[in-house]
Design a binder for these strands. Structure first.
Lengths: 317, 317
DNA sequence: ACAGTGTTTGAAACTAGTTACATGAGTCAA
DNA sequence: TTGACTCATGTAACTAGTTTCAAACACTGT
């Protein structure tokens, strides 16, 4: 329609300066009238680039992951990369399926949660030669770079805080442990308190499950003076349950969480929690994978510091 | 390496039955040793398909959207479609930028929130000829199909509930209204109560902002007997604040929310809320865009019923 | 023995672009 | 006037596959 070759159209689209003004305007007019849109696939086939990054996360239905993904998406966007989200439902096999899917789509990098992978994952990634970064954990000796906090340390920090306040009858409220090395790490850290841990119970990551499990703890081990909840969702659920049945926090029972959700500071009482820098983690992970993809600079593992936010829900025993 | 033409390799990959067993195994062996991976872009260029769907949402940092996205992702996955998430931060211009990005990537469909779009959006999608479905609203007369609840009705249902309990001094706690036609719709519905609405205040979607705004309401209009919160986050924040300052809900003040987050049923007291079927909405929207993409069947707008969950936080005045 | 049929396979055209190279026109100084 | 040079543009090769068509071959029935 513009009476030029496809090469010239390509130039108008990519290096408009090398085309004479007259032809450029001709082509632009034709593009406008024809509502021409260049095919992304055809461009990708030439550049060998898709500018897509895949994120494999357990679920979005949990504030901690959605804030992380949100931060990643914003950071990647700044480098012209787009994020494909794939949820695995804490299931290692589903993670493997989704990994295949993402690699088939042609993602140029993968972000995963934790360090444990299903058999075959490593081979898949090697075959596609795609950068992988693990997050939500810090495991420098596992082959793939990890950017995150040390879950063992986090669990230990939480229990140490309780011990420093004199608690020696602690109940641990854990999230699901299956296919979840992050929670397992936290639990190991918490169990360094040894005898001081009276009981460990597993709950779903919901207020109702936290309430039910709190009830169980109080029935089975009524002498506990502190709840250590491995996620803030559980701690918030426990706080609500304890308040409902008239147990006063922290007077009767201290409660500490891990995550430090933004909402935790506004609870009654404000929840003491180990702050996990998930927003920073999202930014750092996104920046690292960008560097790796664009400049082939493999990042080294990076430990992000988690620190306690001592609020009103824990007290000297 | 297998001593065959590329055509035969292509056949082994796509229609293995038409290739003789001997050559097939030869090719498969070569694929294995070479760790050959077919290029997704080259495939896409032939099929004209990317199997990608884009979702434009205000933020993931809000349970209501992340649950919606989670449900969509699961449903799309079942049809072999993948989801690219783009967040707009409630900003119409950023939404337009992200739309361009998604269309350049080659998404085959778009899911958007609400019906109001920046200038130029319509032209962009028409140019790319991509199906678009609006969610979180029901606006059958706006050109693009919408799958969601009627925000006006939802706001009206909430205020009608309060009125039916005899409340005639109602405070409305709204979320941000800028670039958010969903909240505006709810507010219009709530304002049908006319004189009964004493005050309308806008808050950020956080517990702390909800607390601060609740404080303001009690100072400025101490005679209110009910809080109508246009999001559960605000209602939960209000509940926590009121409890902290010793105001009893529902004895002193009734509180009703909109969203019905899973956590709301476990609050103290359990929060009365208008249940919004976001998980169903995610599934329905995903199924509809799949049908549209795969079979060119344009869906008609669908209204999903929102219904009140009458719990303990509202009472006869 | 020969025609008809079915099975495999490769050659070549095709998808929609990018890019190296060549060509032709126009400008300018020797 | 001519050689040197720049500028703009087309030609054709190239990206990595899919698909159509035709050819080669084996097998069957007459």
């Amino acid at each position: 329609m513009a009476g030029v070759s496809v090469a010239t159209v390509s130039r108008v689209l990519n290096k408009p300066t090398v085309v004479s003004k007259a032809t450029r305007e001709n082509v632009e007019r034709a593009i406008e009238t024809l509502k021409f849109v260049p095919s992304s696939s055809a461009r990708a086939i030439n550049s060998g680039r898709t500018r897509l990054v895949g994120a494999l996360i357990p679920t979005l239905d949990h504030a901690i992951f959605s804030r992380f993904i949100d931060a990643m998406e914003v950071q990647l966007d700044a480098s012209g990369l787009s994020l494909i989200v794939a949820t695995t439902g804490y299931d290692a096999d589903r993670e493997l399926d989704k990994t295949k899917r993402l690699l088939n789509i042609g993602v140029e990098g993968l972000i995963v949660s934790g360090i444990a992978r299903a058999d075959g994952f490593q081979e898949l990634v090697e075959r596609h030669q795609v950068p992988v970064i693990a997050t939500s954990c810090f495991e420098p000796d596992h082959g793939i770079p990890s950017i995150g906090y040390d879950n063992f340390q986090v669990g230990k920090d939480a229990v140490d805080h309780l011990r420093s306040l004199g608690h020696s009858n602690i109940a641990i409220l854990s999230g699901p442990i299956a296919d979840n090395d992050r929670t397992r790490g936290r639990l190991s850290g918490a169990l360094t308190a040894g005898e001081a841990v009276q009981t460990v119970l597993e709950a779903e990551l919901s207020f109702s499950s936290a309430a039910e499990t709190s009830r169980k703890i109080l029935t089975e081990t009524p002498n506990v003076t502190a709840f250590l909840c491995l996620s803030d969702v559980l701690a918030q659920g426990a706080l609500l349950y304890l308040s409902k049945i008239g147990v006063q926090v922290p007077r009767d029972i201290s409660v500490i969480g891990i995550d430090d959700l933004p909402s935790s500071a506004s609870f009654n009482p404000p929840l003491t929690s180990i702050h996990l820098p998930v927003v920073d983690m999202g930014k750092e992970a996104a920046a690292a994978i960008t560097q790796w993809i664009e400049a082939d600079i493999e990042p080294s593992s990076k430990k992000l510091e988690a620190e306690i936010r001592d609020r009103g829900s824990t007290i000297q025993v």
